[in-house]
């Protein structure tokens, strides 16, 4: 459904070099710090920026050559950009009707009501959470096959974040062939939603795994320095040494749990994985 091959783009002090493939019906997460290249990657997928080199194929076409019809199959929520803030939801409904023939007005109104969004208040008077929900609902308003959501939960409290994630889940349940690409710097948002996760740092993909494998196979191994010397490091992918112990990231926690019954093996969260891959000793 989406394929990026050696996509390159350079800005002052920043280089992007990305290869990824997203099949149909997949929920894919991009995780990384602010400025890691998530938004640039998504903008390239949308044809908003022109890659310096490399191939991009989205829905079988080059995004820069998208026709209006092609774009109707994609629903987008950008992190910093939406309709002008002087509009009300009532205005936006009329505008969306002008853009999409299959704009689902009743459904959109119902969902806005469910989220308690006011119809006749200007967006500039909305709270951050309300704006975030509206953005996601706009992306979902025309039964798009592919949703692209850039940081849909940024700046939200835990309750609002869950509401947004539940909106996405409900959209996915309506049709199993729908795909989502979602970026976030909050890993727990992605853990319970995405099928696979790309970790992006400094314009590069540092890890790509199914969420299932990340949570099921990756683990944290904690050993003393002496134990570390004798440890079989076949499945160790990152280590951090401190004064009293060595913390290792493993891609096969079962192996260490079974072969070294005395050492501590814990489940790893995506945050731990990022910290150990990025911040670990080389």
């Amino acid at each position: 459904m989406v394929r990026l091959t050696d996509l390159r783009k350079e800005y002052k002090g920043f280089k992007l070099d990305i290869t990824m493939e997203i099949p149909e019906g997949r929920v894919t997460g991009l995780i990384g710090r602010n400025g890691a290249g998530k938004t640039t990657t998504l903008k390239a997928i949308l044809g908003l920026i022109r890659p310096a080199s490399g191939e991009i194929e989205v829905l079988g076409k080059k995004p820069m050559e998208f026709s209006a019809e092609d774009k109707k199959q994609i629903g987008v929520a950008l992190s910093s950009s939406c309709f002008s803030k002087v509009f009300t939801i009532s205005d936006i409904i009329q505008i969306l009707k002008g853009f999409y023939d299959d704009f689902n007005e009743d459904d959109f109104r119902k969902k806005c009501k469910d989220q308690e969004l006011p119809f006749d208040k200007q967006i500039k008077d909305f709270s951050t959470g309300m704006v975030a929900k509206l953005r996601v609902l706009i992306a979902m308003s025309h039964s798009a096959k592919l949703l692209i959501l850039d940081e849909p939960t940024a700046g939200l409290d835990v309750i609002a974040r869950n509401d947004v994630l539940d909106l996405i889940r409900a959209y996915l349940e309506e049709d199993p062939n729908r795909s989502v690409i979602i970026s976030s710097h909050i890993s727990t948002d992605l853990e319970g939603l995405c099928d696979d996760i790309y970790m992006i740092n400094d314009g590069r993909i540092i890890l790509h795994e199914d969420t299932d494998a990340l949570l099921g196979k990756y683990g944290i191994v904690k050993v003393s320095k002496e134990e570390y010397e004798t440890l079989d490091k076949k499945y160790i992918v990152g280590t951090r040494k401190d004064n009293f112990s060595v913390t290792c990231l493993t891609s096969e926690k079962q192996f260490y749990a079974e072969n070294y019954p005395k050492i501590v093996v814990e489940n790893a969260h995506i945050d731990d994985i990022i910290v150990l891959i990025l911040g670990g000793d080389k």
Binding site: L48, A68, I74, S84
Partner: peptide, 21 residues
């Protein structure tokens, strides 16, 4: 100017139109 505000162009261009439109 309203289209320019808040980086609005990026979002406008994700709607079903071509830039020339």
């Amino acid at each position: 100017a309203y289209d320019y505000n808040d980086d609005g162009f990026s979002f406008l261009m994700t709607l079903p139109i071509k830039p020339g439109d």
